[in-house]
Design a protein around this nucleic acid. Structure first.
Lengths: 220, 220, 220, 220
DNA sequence: CATGAATGAGCTTTCATTCAT
DNA sequence: TATGAATGAAAGCTCATTCAT
């Protein structure tokens, strides 16, 4: 929400022309995603955005907060995407397939966000990190856990499993899929395991992952 | 092997008293694990090790090579640990439990190595990273894939799955378990999902993960 | 020319107030001249110029390029001074006297440039040094050689000498005069030979050197 | 003399086996000549000499004194060479030719000494530099001045010249010849002027230089 | 005596951040 | 508001010198 982010940027940023604001965010996102926090320089972002360093500091208190904002932005988008899938009343298997396809598509389309997310998980503790993990993961956790719990009641999923833990395992699977699509290291790892370029493996991924999940959850 | 690492440190380092060498490595490992490559300063490592900057450069060509050495060290240890589990002729479920317990124990005992590994997955490509991912992952990949393939033949695992891909999914599960034990972000995430501190969740993890895998692989 | 130097400094340097730019160059010239390249520290130059280290790096890519710029500057000035003397249609003896007096004056007024030039002759080869020697010396070489050749035709100089080699010897004489005025070692050496402080020896130098050259070239 | 140098090295150096002592001096001379004082590292000298850093410091108080010793050594050799020529009772022209040929030969055979000498003239003032110039130049100065004075009396050289100043000019010519043979910058300069490689120009040099000096001094 | 590991001051260079224009 | 020059702390790294073995 805007209010939650309000401390992350200054009022001036809000008043910027849409185009300019987007441009700055796009450049910053790419830079942070490609080079990591420490290796990204404010000067570079300014240059590539066609603005001055001074301006960046007029919009954001400092580098850390710009990074935070960028990250939150990306995660909100991802969150949004997931939330749109949630309410559907479909068969759980079909829903799973939708999620997988959506995540794959998102990771391909906006790999910077996934890279950013991945790099986030590595950063040392900082004021804002804790809060972030809280917020980001909480949404997915709750959706998955509830979905599983409900499915247990409807008999779609067996009852001898811990919904929360299985939600956690489920999200692990999804997270790794995303990383495998967007992050160099995980990309290479995917190739080492499967012998396929992740770019051309959508169907393999969907099919096998569903097979895996279906059995794991004992979907009917 | 020593020969593979021989270019990473200088002869002087080898001749150091055991205690001192270990101390330096321990400090450096912690620093890199906690702060990442860029935020770790050689001066800090020197101070905390009780030696001088000059000495570090007598032992290692530069910061990058020290980091590389530290990382290789850790990964060798992990590799070793895994390889020791591999040859056993036991029931696949028992083997899986052993692996899980071993990884949990390792991650608790040497969280720095896991953190380091995790941070590695984020770093931009560097000369040595590619080679590393190749080596580290390849070992696990081959072990898991073969184990699954064999289990398919013995009927322990169903035949309709792609062994390589399932090996990949299996390792995803294991990787995330390790991260969840050792890395702050993933730790928090585990808590958000399960409501339990990962430190006290060994039995939950083992039980549920086995349940999950057993079903997924359709273990008999 | 400006274009030739344009790669040596950054645009920011050009925009500096005249006074500040001059100050920085003066300080840097003195430091390099007095201490040589290696013993000159950027921090010292910054302090003595009343600016920050960071600023120096805003003006010049690095120490080497600052040095190069300083040297080129000085050599251009010297070159300029010599070129102004060349075109005159005067008697060759008068011209020689003018050159000697000009070089003495220049060496007294801007000893740093001569010291710098002298120190240059010692430095190990570097990318730019070769080019420089080529350029600096080539101008003088060509002027002197042609002047001698012409004087041979007009009968002012005897015909049995190799113009190029005599030009070389002539420049040797001039070079040493300059060094003797500006560089500590050569200054001392002048005193040892003549018993006079070079500072007060203008007339002696002019008179005797002309005597020497006149006879050597057999000027009429 | 040994006594004059006695403060430059420690007693231990004297007791070294001839071969070892020579080896160290040879290596040090080359290093200093090729890289200059600042760019020569004690460690390199030690390594190339096959001894330890510690040993060097057992022989010489510090880098500066080692350098000083090396330089004095070289200059003594040069001095020696010149002194051997002095006492001859020959025709002054023949003597001049001998000197030129000797200097050329020496510069070719031991270019390191000349390079070292050249680099000396550049160094900023230091305790020992003044003394050196005093000693080195004084010998040549006195020999040349006296020779000229005597030649004036015998009528070999015209009487209207200042013997000391002409001795100075004479030595200038000789000095530049040596530099031109041994030092990169001056080598290149020679080529620019004459179009010949200095290595193959002995006869040109001797012939033209004598022509020059003969006329300059009005040798009969 | 010889060794070479240890030291730490000092160097060049970068970059987040400030602030006068 | 926008700019970008100025700042200076802090980093990686080198090397003359010392000293325990």
């Amino acid at each position: 929400m805007a209010t939650e982010n309000s401390q992350l940027y200054k009022a001036t940023f809000e008043n910027l022309p849409e185009e300019k604001r987007k441009r700055i965010l796009r450049v910053a996102t790419e830079e942070f995603a490609d080079n990591g926090f420490e290796n990204t320089s404010i000067l570079q972002i300014a240059k590539k955005s066609g603005i001055s360093v001074g301006s960046i500091y007029k919009y954001f208190e400092n580098k850390e907060l710009l990074f935070t904002y960028i990250v939150r932005e990306g995660l909100s988008t991802l969150e949004q995407t997931l939330l749109e899938l949630a309410p559907s009343e479909e068969d759980i298997l079909i829903k799973a397939e939708k999620i997988i396809r959506t995540l794959l598509a998102f990771s391909k389309e906006k790999p910077e966000f996934i890279k950013l997310y991945c790099s986030l998980t590595t950063r040392g503790n900082s004021e804002f990190l804790d809060g972030l993990s809280q917020r980001i993961e909480a949404v997915a956790a709750s959706i998955y856990t509830q979905t599983i719990a409900i499915a247990q009641e409807t008999g779609e999923v067996r009852k001898d499993v811990n919904p929360a833990f299985f939600a956690y395992l489920l999200d692990n699977v999804f997270m790794m899929l995303q990383f495998s699509v967007a992050c160099p290291y995980y990309k290479e790892r995917f190739y080492i395991y499967t012998g396929n370029q992740v770019e051309n493996s959508d169907e393999l991924i969907v099919e096998q992952t569903l097979l895996f999940l279906k059995a794991a959850f004992n979907f009917k």
